[in-house]
Design a protein around this nucleic acid. Structure first.
Lengths: 213, 213
DNA sequence: GGGCTATGCATGGATTTCCATAAGATGCGG
DNA sequence: CCGCATCTTATGGAAATCCATGCATAGCCC
């Protein structure tokens, strides 16, 4: 059970480096998959478990930093950069864009392993968070269009009466939508629903403000 | 009105640099105050307006990166590092700890000005957020001990009855505490109060969960 | 056409919240 | 000791919410 609950992807054009890193990881009981180019990595079928990406900056096809930006939009493992010819602007850019570390060769095994541990830990957290949020989004998708209109009004703190007026429907109908929303979202209370809406980043449309600053 | 709604602090042991940077900023209509050491900066009386800190890594008293960590606990302006002998690990550490940029000499005026603009913009946002949160904390401090016990129960979604039982007091009493909380916190609705509690990072003590997935 | 979903409205009763008024006990500081 | 803040309880009525049952219309898929 030591080696299959996480995996490390290695992208480096130098085969000797790939081998050396693979062996280092193996000696720590960690599975690794290596790629010789960014394209190979992108096209590969990657297992969906906690992982991290060790990425060489200098690659044959595209620059490692560009690859970072390219995959930034979607979900991707935390990145640990390694490089033979690193410069400060590159390291700054890499870290600003979320890389876990930026190691210039030669670096110690300990430094790399520390970075990998941190990266995988980060991925674990991110995955837990994603899974959680995913469930929430799933439930949100089950709502009907009307219910999706009701939700923001309710979590804005409007009374049923006011929310109903806002939609031009009767209070009774709104109550039914509201109840359906609570049920489909599996919210145990209004407070719960408010927090869910926050996490889903549903904007508060008609805040019922009194006189607070 | 061009130059007094923001200020740049410059900490560098080289007087020529301080002068050159001061003039560069002056030519852009930006006020600057210079310091020759970290200690001078720390002890100085600094105006409370949007600002940024241009910090040399190599200082006579303490290292710039250590100064960064030292002031990290409290509120401080965003930092733009400059250095004559920069190395990658330093830049990585600086950015990971929140620095806006890390510029190795020689750098262009344009790069520095861009970093300063970004830093001051960040400070503006941080200040707005702080001011907002400050007001909220202020109101929270006005709550009595009992009211501070009631708040988390209420925003957990408990019914008044349940919250009252939790505290071993009558429902009526709890309602009064609850009303006082709403009033003192200037919350227009329960939804509002829930969001305030979120921002204050008040933990949800007794979530009233039903049968969510 | 028949079934299904979404949307809409109504009535009625149980429960809960909201609000105002009244009032007692405790403890702390001037 | 007096005043003040805090914490406590009670009563009673107005308003809002929660829940169930019943029913109507419109659109869509088979």
């Amino acid at each position: 059970m030591t080696g299959h609950d996480r995996i490390v992807f290695i992208v480096d054009d130098d085969e000797r480096i790939r081998e050396a890193l693979g062996e280092l990881l193996a000696s720590h009981g960690i599975d690794a998959v290596t790629f010789g180019s960014a394209g190979d990595y992108i096209r590969a079928d990657k297992p969906d478990i906690p992982s991290c990406l060790i990425l060489d900056v200098e690659l044959p096809d595209i620059n490692g930093l560009d690859l970072q930006r390219q995959i930034a939009a979607g979900d991707h493992p935390p990145i640990v950069f390694i490089t033979g010819h690193g410069d400060i602007p590159s390291s700054v850019r890499a870290i600003k864009h979320g890389a876990v570390d930026f190691l210039a060769k030669p670096f110690s095994d300990a430094d790399l392993m520390a970075a990998i541990d941190a990266a995988i830990g980060e991925d674990r957290r991110k995955r837990a968070e994603r899974a959680d949020l995913g469930k929430l989004r799933q439930r949100y998708l089950e709502l009907t269009p009307r219910e999706r209109e009701v939700l923001p009004l309710v979590v804005s703190g409007l009374l049923n009466k006011q929310a109903a007026a806002e939609l031009g429907i009767s209070e009774v109908t709104l109550q039914i939508h509201r109840r359906n929303v609570m049920h489909k979202m599996a919210a145990a209370s209004l407070a719960d629903l408010v927090r869910m809406a926050e996490r889903l980043e549903i904007p508060v449309t008609h805040s019922r403000r009194a006189g607070g600053s």
